[in-house]
C-alpha cells in the first residue's frame, strides 16, 4: 500500500486548496451602486381595535359573564371583538408613490401588533419624503399620522430608518 503521496498527488490535492484560496474572497461583488441610499420604513404599531364596546354594551357583557367566570377573569375579559384595524400605509418620495397598501395585524385573529418593513433604494441627495399611516378603522380613507419632509438629505450609502413611536404617536427617524 502506498504510504505517501507523490509530487503529482500533492499537486492534485493543491487544486481545491488553490480554488479555496481564490474563491474565498474573489471576485468581489457590489451589492449597491455608488450614490445610492436607502429609506426604510419599519413600523411596529398596535392599531386600534375594530370595535370597542360602549358603556351599555360593556354592562350587558359583564352581566352575561356573571356566574360563568370568576371576578378577576371578568375584569380582564374583552368586550367586543379583539380584532384590530388593518393598517393603511402610503410612502411617496419626490411625489412618486413607492408604496401604498394595507397591512394586516399579526395573530390568527388579527389581534396582534402590526409590523411594516419596507425599504426603498433612492439616489443620494435631498428628497421630498411623505409617509402616511392609518391605524384606526376609519372609513373615510384619510390617514391618522403623517410624516413629511420637504428635503430629507440622504448621503451616499446612508440608510435612514423611519419608525413610529407609539408613546408620542409620532414618526421618528432612528
Amino acid at each position: 500500500m502506498a504510504k505517501n503521496l507523490g509530487l503529482a498527488g500533492w499537486l492534485v490535492m493543491a487544486i481545491p486548496a488553490v480554488l479555496t484560496f481564490i474563491f474565498s474572497t474573489w471576485p468581489t461583488y457590489s451589492f449597491t451602486a455608488d450614490h445610492v441610499a436607502a429609506f426604510t420604513v419599519a413600523i411596529k404599531r398596535s392599531t386600534a381595535r375594530v370595535h370597542l364596546c360602549d358603556e351599555a354594551e360593556r354592562a350587558a357583557f359583564l352581566d352575561a359573564m356573571k356566574g360563568r367566570v370568576k371576578h378577576m377573569q371578568r375584569k380582564n375579559a374583552v368586550c367586543g371583538s379583539r380584532e384590530k384595524a388593518i393598517m393603511g400605509l402610503k410612502v411617496a418620495v419626490d411625489g412618486k408613490e413607492l408604496f401604498s397598501g394595507e397591512i394586516k395585524p399579526s395573530g390568527l385573529h388579527s389581534d396582534g401588533v402590526t409590523y411594516v418593513y419596507e425599504s426603498f433604494h433612492l439616489p443620494s441627495g435631498a428628497h421630498h419624503v411623505k409617509v402616511e399611516m392609518r391605524d384606526t378603522n376609519r372609513s373615510d380613507g384619510e390617514f391618522d399620522h403623517t410624516f413629511e419632509r420637504d428635503s430629507l438629505e440622504f448621503a451616499p450609502g446612508q440608510v435612514i430608518v423611519l419608525d413610529f413611536d407609539s408613546d408620542t404617536k409620532t414618526f421618528v427617524i432612528l
Binding site: Y29, T32, D34
Partner: peptide, 20 residues
C-alpha cells in the same frame, strides 16, 4: 454599520454565492 448600505465586499463564493 447598519446606518450604511453594504457596498462592495469580497465574497466567499462557496457559501455566499446565492446572495449575489
Amino acid at each position: 454599520d447598519l446606518s450604511k448600505l453594504v457596498g462592495t465586499i469580497d465574497i466567499d463564493w462557496f457559501y455566499m454565492a446565492p446572495y449575489p
